[in-house]
Nucleic acid binder design. Structure first.
Lengths: 148, 148
DNA sequence: CCTTGCCTTAAAGTGCACATGAAGGGTTAA
DNA sequence: TTAACCCTTCATGTGCACTTTAAGGCAAGG
C-alpha cells in the first residue's frame, strides 16, 4: 500500500504520516525498490493508535517517550506502566472536565436565559448536581478498569 | 481587584486576561482613574467560563461567536441554541473518543504485553467491550441532559 | 516526447493561543 | 529620590503539530 492509500484508509494526511515516522511515533516504514514507502497493516494500526491518543490529547512528545520504551526492548515495564498511568490519570481528569463543561452548557440550554452570565444560582445548581453525582459514584467504585 | 489578583484567583495569566478582553471573550473591563483594570466577580465568572470551555476544547473563535450573539441582545436565541448544540455534540463526541482511548490504555495496562503493537485480538476485545456497552446504553436513554 | 500523477526529501510557512519584551507611567516605603 | 512593584499598550517571539512549497525522480498513457 502506498502512502496515499494509507492516508485515505486512516484519514491522516500523507505529510502527517511522514511526520509521524520522522518523529518516531510509528516504526520505520519499508521501502520499495525505488524508495517509496510500502505500508502494511501493522503500520496502519500504529497510525490509528497514534490518532486515537492524539485525539485524546496526548502530546507527540509523550507518545514518543512511551513508544520508545517499547522499542528499546529493555526491562522497562515498570516505567511504561508509570507513563501509561500518568497519561490515564490526565485523560480521566480531562474527561471529567469535559463532562463538567457539557453539564454547564446543557444547563444553559435547558434554562435558557436572555443573558449569558453564569449567575450565582446557576453555579449553585451546578455545584448541587456535582455533589449529587459524587455521592452516586461512591456506591459504584469499580476496579479501575473502564471506570466511566 | 487588580489584574494580578484576578490572575491568582483564576489561574489565568495577566497576559491571557488582557488577551481575552481584546478578543472579546470577556466584557470590557472597568478602569480606575489611572487606567488600570478593576476586575469584579462578574468578570471573574466570565473568565472561569472561558477557562472551562477552553479546557473542553472550544476554540477562541467559536467562543467569541457564541458570546457576541448574547452581547448583540437581538432575537438570536435560536442561533445561540444552535451553536450550543453544535458545541455540545462536539464535546460529547470528544468525551466518547477520550473514553475509548482510556479503555484502550486500560486494556494495555491490564493485559501487559512485551510489545506495544495493538494486536488483532486486542482490537477484537476492545470492539467486543464497546458493543457490550452500547447495548447497556440502550436501556438508559436519558433526556439529553447530563447524559454521561 | 511530453504530460500526468504518483512518489521522495528538506526547508520553510501557518494558525492558534498565548508569552515575552520594550518603553513608559503611578503609588508606596525607606 | 530612588527603588520596588504594580500597571499600561504595542510589537514581536514561541511552541506545537502539522502543511505547504521547492526541486526533483519514476512509470504509464497519448
Amino acid at each position: 500500500m502506498n502512502i496515499k492509500e494509507a492516508s485515505e484508509k486512516t484519514g491522516v494526511s500523507s505529510a502527517a504520516i511522514r511526520y509521524y515516522e520522522k518523529e518516531l511515533l510509528i516504526p520505520a516504514i519499508d521501502r520499495t525498490d525505488v524508495g517509496n514507502r510500502d505500508i502494511d497493516d501493522r503500520i496502519i494500526r500504529r497510525i490509528q493508535f497514534v490518532t486515537q491518543m492524539r485525539a485524546a490529547g496526548m502530546s507527540i512528545e509523550n507518545l514518543r517517550r512511551y513508544i520508545q520504551l517499547f522499542d528499546a526492548q529493555e526491562d522497562n515495564a515498570k516505567e511504561q506502566k508509570t507513563i501509561l498511568k500518568t497519561q490515564l490519570a490526565a485523560m480521566e481528569e480531562k474527561r471529567d472536565d469535559l463532562q463538567s463543561a457539557i453539564d454547564h452548557l446543557n444547563y444553559k440550554l435547558n434554562h435558557f436565559y436572555d443573558h449569558m452570565e453564569t449567575t450565582e444560582e446557576e453555579l449553585r445548581e451546578l455545584e448541587r448536581q456535582h455533589a449529587e453525582k459524587a455521592t452516586d459514584d461512591e456506591t459504584s467504585e469499580g476496579d479501575g478498569y473502564d471506570n466511566r
